[in-house]
Design a protein around this nucleic acid. Structure first.
Lengths: 189, 189
DNA sequence: GCCAGCATGTAAGGAGTTACATGATTAT
DNA sequence: ATAATCATGTAACTCCTTACATGCTGGC
């Protein structure tokens, strides 16, 4: 019986520990936040439970560090079994399909039943938050230009930027079409 | 106490019933598959449980239809309370953030620990499946050119196409860069 | 003869979230 | 003062998936 594979989230956490520097759950949680641009960010409680599972599998080991005043801190470190497991995963695990949960598109899909003014407002706020995300991605990419260990993260930031820009561009043109009540203009092109 | 909002999935199912034509769980399930391009496709068992919840809320009603030989069939129909709830949702519910689970980007993020040949192969298969998805989207969009009730679905297909094309374009250029071992070329541009 | 499609439903469990609880330190 | 950051952990719950169970019809 082939043991069932761990969810990608477990490997994402394991991957963050690959540099072998011991990290606390709290630090890992913060590091995991940058995953949100392309792989959502797990909740704090899930980070802790993934760490416990990883430890049960001997992929990570932990030690308690006493701190004056503060509660004890548990520092996690990847084991050599963990490094091996991560390498096997990244090289050989089958690629799961990309999943997108795009609430704006879901609403537009049912646009027939919506108020066009409301839809316009929602599209506008979608564009605004996308632009904010873009601004954050620019920062990641600039980081990379200085720190060579940021090669790959910088690369995926660049990729996400390119795609998000296309997203915003389309959303803007759609917004104009909705406001002009001219939804089928693209047929005529 | 404000009753907590239903998950978007419930509204997605409700929305599919908005045309007031009664549908069986099976038909709804098939219809829900087209949501996968921008909102993943719920499992069959979840469709059925959402329908039961929607019925408990009186947003849909159902009748049993006997069929010779085959097991009974339950036909669902949206109620006026359901139509009102859907309209309120689409017009006023706050827009949840877009979530992307992109396994290819997750792997590239940890590219330092991967074999470049394996990564290339994975990128190639990512490009292949993306192209297959594109082909399916073209079909949806062509559908729309004939059926005016397909306006909005056609529009989001067009949007998804535009974005996926940008995705594939970037992936292809990245693949070439990886194969040439030339990852930081974009700095020099 | 077998598989795909039609058609529904349950059981078990995994994945993931929110909310709560605790408490020190540092910055505003 | 009070909010944010550091720091961990649990309980309760929802969402969602996989797997199983059943059985007919029509095509290859």
């Amino acid at each position: 019986m082939a043991k069932k594979p761990l969810p990608s989230t477990a490997y994402a956490v394991l991957g963050l520990l690959m540099p072998t520097t011991p990290m606390s759950g709290y630090e890992i949680r913060k590091a995991a936040e940058q995953l949100r641009y392309f792989y959502w960010s797990p909740a704090q409680s899930q980070i802790y439970s993934e760490l416990r599972r990883l430890e049960a599998l001997h992929y990570v080991s932990s030690i308690l560090v006493s701190q004056s005043g503060k509660p004890d801190k548990r520092m996690y470190k990847i084991t050599s079994a963990g490094q091996a497991a991560f390498t096997t995963w990244i090289n050989t695990a089958p690629l799961d399909p990309t999943v997108v949960k795009h609430p704006m598109k879901l609403r537009l899909f049912f646009g027939d039943y919506a108020d066009l003014d409301q839809l316009s407002q929602q599209l506008q706020s979608f564009i605004d938050t996308s632009n904010e995300t873009l601004a954050q991605l620019y920062i990641v990419r600039e980081y990379r230009e200085m720190d060579p260990s940021y090669q790959w993260p910088g690369l995926i930031a660049e990729w996400s930027e390119t795609v998000l820009e296309a997203e915003v561009k389309y959303a803007k043109s759609l917004l104009i079409r909705i406001q002009n009540n001219d939804l089928d203009s693209f047929i005529e092109e």
